[in-house]
């Protein structure tokens, strides 16, 4: 579960305020991230500005490297490119690495809400969240969905709040955790993969049993 271990000890802003903000995410934040001389938006600069606005220090070069879009697909071996392409299709055209960066951009837009800026105390948590807290979600949810789909918007908002140790205003910690668990795409994906694997295994066993029942002559030394 993506939020396992998060303690939502403080009350944050209203959920609706943040989901509305996400739905109003400017198209610029969904542009191609800049990497390998390509793309239009410099994610490291966006993150750097955000951390500063949240009361943090200027990020170091090695800290900013985390927000690079990764190597160009052209440099990958052919087989890797095929696999990546398949993953891209699942992610609505973005590679997992690319989707991660896009999701960081969308989350950066979210965290630039005036509530966080005014508080001015979330720079460290925000940096941890953006540098690794969205990785799992990025493997299963296309960044665009976190803007266009109401459920995924709510999930991203709740995930970000939880990682910052916050719960939506007016909710108890238990309510907030319960709702986040319900929306958890990573968990849903894990359960679905598990169910698919179990169904495949059951199918394989049924097929093997059909085949082996037909053989019947296997060594057995008495009637039972």
């Amino acid at each position: 579960m993506a939020t396992l271990g998060c303690v939502m000890h403080s009350e944050g802003p209203l959920l609706e305020t943040l989901t509305r903000r996400l739905s109003e995410c400017p198209p610029d934040f969904l542009l191609e991230p800049f990497a390998m001389e390509k793309g239009e938006i410099h994610v490291d600069a966006v993150v750097s500005d955000l951390i500063r606005d949240l009361g943090g220090k200027r990020l170091m070069v090695h800290e900013l490297e985390i927000f690079g879009a990764g190597p160009s697909q052209k440099k990958q071996p052919a087989a890797v490119q095929v696999v990546k392409r398949l993953q891209d299709l699942k992610m609505g055209g973005a590679s997992p690495q690319n989707n991660r960066i896009r999701l960081i951009l969308v989350a950066s837009w979210l965290l630039h809400d005036s509530w966080f800026v005014t508080e001015g105390t979330f720079a460290r948590e925000a940096f941890v969240l953006l540098s690794k807290g969205l990785d799992l979600m990025a493997t299963v949810v296309p960044a665009e969905k976190c803007v266009s789909d109401p459920e995924r918007r709510e999930e991203l908002v709740r995930l970000c709040l939880a990682k910052l140790g916050l719960r939506p205003a007016g909710e108890t910690g238990l309510q907030a955790q319960d709702r986040l668990t319900t929306l958890d795409s990573v968990e849903r994906d894990r359960v679905m993969r598990k169910a698919r694997a179990a169904e495949q295994r059951a199918h394989d066993i049924r097929e093997a049993m059909k085949k082996k029942a037909a053989e019947e002559a296997a060594a057995k030394y008495n009637r039972e």
């Binding site: 394989d204 066993i205 093997a208 049993m209 082996k212 029942a213 053989e215 019947e216 296997a218 057995k220 009637r223 039972e224």
Partner: peptide
Amino acid sequence: DLKRMLVYRTA
């Protein structure tokens, strides 16, 4: 290991 599985019918 399904490769070593056998299947019997009960009497």
